[in-house]
Simulated scan of single mutants.
Amino acid sequence: MSTSVIWQRSSFSGGSEGNNCVEVRIYAGRIHLRESDAPDAIVTTNRTHLSAFIRRIKAGG
C-alpha cells in the first residue's frame, strides 16, 4: 500500500502520547483500520461490512 495516503485519527482517541489511537484511511475503494501502536497490523474492509459491524456493536451484539 502506498505510504502517501494519509491516515486519520479518531477524535475519541484520548491521551497526549499519540500511541493509543485508532486510525482509518480509504484507499483503492477499501477502508483500512489500524492502531497507531501497531501500524503494520491493518484490517481491511468495505463500507457495507464496516457499517454492519458498527450497527451490531451499537445494538449490544
Rank of each mutant, 00 (worst) to 15 (best):
I6L: 14
R30G: 07
R47K: 11
C21H: 09
S16P: 03
Y27M: 12
Y27E: 15
R34D: 10
S51F: 05
I42E: 07
R47W: 04
D40H: 13
G14W: 05
A28N: 12
C21A: 06
R30W: 08
I6F: 04
I42K: 00
I57Y: 01
N19K: 14
C21W: 12
H49P: 00
N46G: 14
G61Y: 02
S4L: 09
T44E: 10
A28T: 07
A59Q: 09
R25F: 02
G29P: 07
I54A: 10
S4Q: 15
I42T: 14
T3Q: 13
A52M: 05
S36H: 07
H49Y: 05
T3N: 15
V43P: 02
R30A: 15
R25M: 04
I26H: 08
V5A: 14
R56C: 02
G29V: 07
Q8Y: 10
D40L: 06
N20T: 14
N46L: 04
N20E: 11
D40C: 03
I6S: 09
V24R: 12
R25N: 11
G60Y: 02
T3R: 11
R56N: 04
I26W: 09
T44Y: 01
W7P: 00
M1T: 10
D37L: 07
H49M: 06
E17D: 10
A28P: 00
R9Q: 10
R47G: 05
G61Q: 08
E35S: 11
R30H: 15
R9E: 13
S10T: 03
S36R: 00
R56W: 01
S4T: 10
G60N: 04
V43E: 08
A59G: 08
I54R: 00
M1N: 07
E23C: 03
G29S: 09
Q8R: 15
G61F: 03
